[in-house]
């Protein structure tokens, strides 16, 4: 099955909306994320969210990567790749 991308846009929201909503979204899509059928992309303009969200998600066993885009940081959360498949 192809990977589906779930997007969560929390640009402009006050603290601690970032981590709170990101965790909610992770838990709501737990099944999809864990099975590798989907990944979650969180868009935020908060610098601290690039510490707290990756910290919490990696503690839960997910693979996390962060990229700086034109208007925000993009945090990608997905199931860790055990067997190499594209």
């Amino acid at each position: 099955m192809r990977n589906k991308t779930i997007s969560l846009d929390i640009i402009g929201q006050m603290c601690p909306a970032c981590l709170l909503l990101a965790l909610k979204e992770i838990n709501r899509n737990k099944g999809l994320l864990r099975s590798g059928k989907a990944n979650l992309i969180v868009k935020t303009d908060h610098r601290d969210a690039t510490r707290t969200i990756p910290g919490a998600a990696s503690a839960m066993g997910y693979a996390v990567s962060v990229a700086k885009k034109e208007t925000h940081y993009e945090i990608k959360i997905e199931q860790k790749n055990e067997d190499e498949n594209t």
Partner: peptide
């Protein structure tokens, strides 16, 4: 700003996330 050094966050996240 570089650290996003937030003391309000310290108290809040201690109660909210046990961080």
């Amino acid at each position: 700003h570089r650290s996003d050094f937030c003391m309000a966050g310290m108290f809040r996240d201690m109660f909210l996330f046990k961080q």
